[in-house]
């Protein structure tokens, strides 16, 4: 199944393929050094895993970075990927949080094509999702929406009718609840 979004003003088509495999979320704590991202990307690509989202940011401790990687691929390969990531000298820890109790958040910027006639409706939907309006122009709106990935999917779905001109998502970040280590 393909979910195709046609926009009226600009010929932008956003195709979201039906995922073949479930999404896994890995949290990797790494040395903040050049080349670390390339080493990790090689582990995924060599084993046929597609990195769907990737967030890299400084970790709480200086010298370390936190990578949150959303990836899809055959279930059987994932243990091997975790082991290979852990084997990298620059990796401090690598956890799969797919089935863990975590808080998970993502942010999206959504630009829709909308004139004066349907602006009110768009703003009403945006309010329902708790979006922030970042830009309001005569022919377009830019919303910021945060939440779990499902909520973002729903918001994007509702905005399709106006014509989505551009879409930027951060990919999700996760943190374990309670005392668990991320």
């Amino acid at each position: 199944m393909k979910n195709t979004i046609e926009t009226s003003d600009r010929p932008v088509t956003i195709t979201i393929p039906e995922p073949e495999y479930p999404l896994h979320t890995l949290s990797v704590l790494v040395n903040n050094k050049p080349g670390v991202l390339a080493r990790i990307a090689q582990v995924f690509s060599r084993r046929g895993y597609n990195i769907e989202s990737l967030v890299v940011s400084p970790a709480a401790e200086m010298d370390f970075s936190r990578m949150t990687i959303g990836a899809r691929g055959e279930e059987s390969g994932l243990d091997q990927i975790k082991a290979q990531c852990n084997k990298l000298i620059d990796v401090i820890s690598c956890y799969d949080h797919t089935d863990d109790a975590v808080v998970s958040k993502e942010l999206a910027l959504v630009k829709i094509s909308v004139g004066a006639s349907s602006r009110g409706e768009a703003l009403q939907i945006a309010e329902h999702f708790g979006c922030k309006t970042l830009d309001l122009a005569p022919e377009s709106l830019v919303f910021m929406v945060t939440g779990d990935s499902g909520k973002l999917d729903a918001m994007v779905g509702m905005m399709q009718k106006f014509g989505i001109v551009e879409l930027v998502r951060t990919g999700k970040v996760v943190m374990t609840r309670g005392n668990g280590l991320t």
């Binding site: 080349g35 080493r39 090689q42 000298i89 620059d90």
Partner: peptide, 13 residues
């Protein structure tokens, strides 16, 4: 450094 990345245990520049 980049070329040898998949065939070293570790590397430095």
């Amino acid at each position: 450094f980049g070329i040898t990345m998949p065939i070293v245990k570790h590397s430095y520049l």
